[in-house]
Design a binder for these strands. Structure first.
Lengths: 223, 223
DNA sequence: CGGGTACTTGACAATGGTCAAGTGTGGTGG
DNA sequence: CCACCACACTTGACCATTGTCAAGTACCCG
């Protein structure tokens, strides 16, 4: 199980066995909070099975999803290295199995084995790139452009297939795109009626990839 | 000089001398591009003196500043650990002196000395926290709220002084707040006319901190 | 089959961007 | 030392995008 975690790739068996003795193995139902923004951290988490959303809430209750954690990915490491509290909240959106690694043992491991440090540096760098892209999308593109980029991304992930399936609800997608379900629904409707995509529940079919690509780089969306 | 770089704190003298032999020392005039989004990376940079903005450009030319690099800070590390290209562009906004550290020698150093890895993990974590906050601001607050948060941040940096001075132009501040100079100008004007702040060139005086704090957490701005 | 959640649709309001035309203001060269 | 020029900033009129509120429909799970 631990072997499948990217963070521990290349680690000798002995050290894996050592770190396993310190970790905790927890199961969460869907909709449970794993960690809350502002909490002090005693370690970090790895999602083994299920799905977790990392998000921020505004005082008025609007939610911005920063990231959907996939299986094998870690989260909640920021305070371990930078001190302080968690910068966002993590909540399961499916029944999930999560490993918790306490701070001290993991820091020891890093000092002993540089490959863990390198893996962690790669992971954090990857996360920085994703967040950079999120800022770009939110600030420089309108909602249709963000949606187009997301649909194309889903397609790439799937060998550029024309048919893709959302693995989150449309409401969650709206929150990930920095908008609300109503707006997303309207835009999906418009794209449908213009023959750009075909929407059937969570299944999307790309009908005109060129228009999507045009939108995704910042082009305007004419009604 | 190298001693003052946070990344190398705690490093024995011998290793500092070693890394110094591999680095390049460059000077840039104001307005020069240090690295461009999409370029392949051969190393990373440390700003020794001056000021650098890290930003994204939309196809229409709108700019979103992600970060203003301060003296002693590094930038451009993401591709070193995650592979690929620079996710954003870096340009000097003042005459600057910049050290460049080639990839290979630095990776060697990390493998030899875990404290450098720890410093770098702290740096990247810190950056993740900042970007998380930027996403939050852009997505969950309106411009007056972002401005209020920025002014309060400047004040904190300065022992909560009531008088603060912008160290960037208002145009750059607009880009950092995810808006345009016109909008920023109008909001500064409104805040002024309501006695919340006093604006004189780049000098701002906080007159009503409570209102600013209210705005910064997401409160509404009544005209 | 029922209940709740997810989603859709409509009318409306408002934030903030665009375009255009100024008004300073600091730095440089004559 | 002053005039000029470029650039930073301001202000006004307008409008597009998107959020709010409200109501209704579809759909999945138990």
């Amino acid at each position: 199980m631990v072997n499948r975690i990217a963070l521990f790739h290349g680690l000798p068996r002995g050290q894996i066995e050592e770190i396993v003795t310190t970790m905790a193995d927890q199961t969460f139902d869907r909709g449970q909070t794993v960690l809350s923004e502002g909490e002090t951290a005693e370690g970090f988490f790895v999602l083994v099975q299920g799905k977790v959303k990392i998000f921020k809430l505004s005082p008025e209750g609007k939610e911005q999803i920063l990231h959907i954690v996939g299986e094998g990915e870690s989260f909640g490491e920021v305070p371990m290295f930078a001190g302080g509290q968690f910068p966002a909240t993590a909540e399961t959106i499916e029944k999930s199995r999560i490993f918790f690694f306490p701070r001290a043992a993991f820091l020891d491991l890093i000092r002993k084995d540089p490959s863990v440090a390198m893996n962690m540096l790669a992971e954090l760098s990857h996360r920085l790139r994703q967040l950079t892209r999120l800022v770009e999308e939110l600030s420089l593109k309108e909602v249709p452009g963000r949606l187009a980029a997301y649909v194309l991304y889903l397609s790439e992930e799937n060998n550029s297939a024309a048919e893709v399936e959302l693995d989150i609800t449309k409401g969650q997608l709206a929150s990930l795109l920095g908008t609300i379900p109503e707006t997303l629904s309207r835009i999906l409707g418009k794209m449908s009626s213009q023959g750009i995509i075909n929407v059937k529940g969570r299944k999307l079919k790309i009908l005109d990839r060129n228009v999507l690509e045009e939108l995704a780089v910042g082009g305007k969306f004419v009604i």
